[in-house]
């Protein structure tokens, strides 16, 4: 088990390193630079700027310097947000994005699994069919369509919640973005749970448990649930990725000051360091999630634990 985990962990760092390297050179190959603004700068000033940020050095030197910085936890200064370092920008925005994302993830998991179980227990009855029809719609409606609609209904017409915007410490501003972000993965998780639950409930060991006369409650929670959750665990990493990309649009629609906007803006502005910082944060998160999924697999399904 420990060896399994260690080998997984050992793959994480090189992966992150490769991603870092590829993005570093990709964005440098891109035409344009961070100081190409609408009014062109005098050549001398531009040279000085390039020199100040080390952009006049050969690419390999810059790359080496950047790697050394990252190893020390320093992502460098932002090119566009002049008085901020990338670390500052990200650590200001991350709490907002993380709150949004983790709330959406937790809600999608808990509600999705519960709905999936209920639907499986009501298999082929109207409750099941209604839930699954709703799930197809939930998977389909993109969050950038859903959120404006929600804002229109609850913000403009009913006036229950703010249409957009953000205040520190205000929960009301989170409600609509979280709902819009939660629904697609929720729908997907409920479908996955239902399908695997149905399969598990048909298996011989559940029949044995029933034949022993165990109460249905114990069969469900103690025997059926854990194996039924294996596919759900597999969906966790893609779900996190989906929520991260979803939060790009959700943050921009709701005007939440998260880190999502930095990615698109950073790439468009050629804000090299900011983009790199975002790539590192997102990739590290995804890789960590992949690790967690592997651990969860091993916990949910002992057969995986004893392999390799």
């Amino acid at each position: 088990m420990i060896r399994y985990f260690a080998s997984r962990l050992a793959w994480g760092l090189p992966t992150l390193f490769v991603i870092l390297t590829v993005t570093f050179f990709l964005i440098r190959i891109a035409p344009g630079g961070p100081f190409d603004e609408e009014q062109t700068l005098p050549a001398q000033i531009k040279r000085n700027l390039d020199a100040a940020y080390g952009l006049d050095q050969p690419l390999w030197v810059q790359y080496g310097r950047y790697l050394r910085g990252v190893a020390h936890g320093d992502f460098g200064p932002s090119f566009k947000y002049k008085d901020f370092t990338v670390t500052e920008l990200i650590s200001q925005g991350l709490p907002v994005s993380a709150t949004l994302g983790s709330l959406a993830m937790a809600l999608a998991l808990i509600i999705g699994v519960l709905i999936g179980i209920l639907a499986a227990l009501r298999h082929q009855r109207w409750g099941d069919q209604a839930v699954m029809a709703a799930a197809v719609i939930g998977i389909t409606v993109p969050s950038f369509v859903l959120l404006p609609f929600l804002a229109l209904i609850f913000g403009v017409y009913l006036r229950w919640l703010p249409v957009a915007g953000w205040e520190p410490g205000s929960a009301r501003h989170y409600v609509l973005p979280v709902i819009a972000l939660t629904l697609p993965p929720l729908a997907f998780i409920s479908r996955l749970t239902r399908a695997s639950m149905l399969e598990v409930l048909r298996s011989p060991y559940i029949r044995t448990a029933r034949a022993k006369g165990l109460p249905e409650r114990i069969i469900l929670w103690r025997h059926a649930l854990r194996p039924a959750l294996v596919p759900v665990a597999g969906f966790l990493a893609p779900a996190v990725a989906a929520i991260m990309t979803g939060s790009l649009v959700v943050e921009s629609i709701s005007g939440l000051p998260g880190i999502g906007r930095y990615l698109v803006q950073g790439a468009l502005n050629r804000d090299y360091t900011l983009v790199m910082g975002m790539v590192v944060v997102y990739s590290a998160l995804l890789i960590a999630m992949g690790l967690l999924v592997d651990l969860l697999y091993a916990w949910l399904d002992p057969r995986i634990r004893f392999q390799t």
């Binding site: 990709l26 964005i27 990309t245 790009l248 698109v264 990739s283």
Partner: peptide
């Protein structure tokens, strides 16, 4: 595996930018 560890959106943003 490495490619899928990279959020798709980065790639496309880079490609469109490049």
């Amino acid at each position: 595996e490495i490619l899928s560890g990279l959020p798709l959106i980065f790639f496309v943003i880079f490609l469109t930018v490049i």
